[in-house]
Amino acid sequence: MKTKLTLALERTLYDYCREAGTMAVEEVTMPNDAGIVDTLSYQELPSGDIEWRCYELKVTKSDFHSKAKLSFVGHYNYFVLPLKLYQAVATEIPAGIGVLIYRPFTKELLATATETPTAPGYLTVMRPPRRRELAVPASQLTTRFIAAQAREVHKAKQMATGLKTFSTERLYQELKKRHQHYDVYDPEANFYDQFIADTQTTAVTALQDELDALNLEHHQLLEQLRSQRS
């Protein structure tokens, strides 16, 4: 289960890649037991060459020291870290691996923005990466990249068809997952609170519409009575 901070890093990195003119997709399984790349980006250079970049997202020390395989198989490879974590593990990062530092947008910074940001924060380059030869065949990277994109398209199509494709049990499971991130200090950020608020608003609106219709019908009946008496 991804934490709120992991999701913030992931979303910010996706925007970062798009702004750089690259295509990116998350959770790409590598061949030959090379692990799973958190985010893989693809870019065709003016020369016609293809450039691959791999990003590993870490938010805690235990996450950084996890025994999970680091899938640094691209031409350029990065850690994406919050600033505090980078300061704690900087000496442990191998030579040649780049580092992107995540910083969330503060309320003060948002207040000065001319446009609403599409991501919760921004990334800065703390350490540039060194170019390497690919650790897996380029053709396999392309195949895995396309497969991961197809998976995301399938997810999007499922969402587009609405909730009717999901069983009640599945919906309940998803609600329980979101409960893990419940923020008592920010009700507007909680899915359940939004759902209840929307339901109540819909109910009130429906009742108001019904009341307006009854009042109109009552008024029309009174007008008919008056016309009959006259």
Rank of each mutant, 00 (worst) to 15 (best):
L100I: 05
A206N: 11
L214Y: 06
H181Q: 15
H154I: 10
L45C: 03
L207M: 15
Q180I: 11
Y122A: 06
P129W: 04
R53M: 02
L7P: 06
L211P: 03
T91E: 14
Q173S: 09
V25G: 00
T165D: 09
L222I: 04
L85R: 15
A8V: 10
T116V: 10
D183Q: 15
Q43M: 08
A119W: 00
E19K: 12
D209F: 12
I93Q: 00
N32S: 07
P104K: 15
L13C: 08
G96L: 01
E188S: 15
Y172F: 14
Y185G: 14
Q220A: 01
Y172A: 11
T60H: 10
K155H: 05
F195H: 01
E56K: 01
L163Q: 09
V204R: 14
F195R: 02
L163D: 06
D63M: 13
K164R: 13
R53C: 03
L123E: 03
K61W: 12
F166R: 07
V25R: 00
G121I: 07
K157S: 03
V184R: 14
I93Y: 02
R103C: 11
T199K: 03
E51I: 11
K177S: 14
N77A: 04
F195T: 02
E27F: 05
D183T: 12
E133A: 06
A113H: 14
H154C: 05
I196M: 14
K58L: 13
E223A: 11
H154T: 11
A189C: 02
Y102T: 03
A189S: 10
M23L: 06
H65N: 09
A8C: 08
A34H: 00
K157P: 04
L110A: 01
Q180C: 11
V125N: 10
L214D: 03
H179W: 15
A90C: 12
P46D: 08
S41M: 00
P31H: 01
P120S: 08
V204N: 05
A148T: 08
T124I: 09
F145A: 08
Q140L: 09
Q228G: 07
R178S: 10
D63T: 12
F72H: 02
D212W: 11
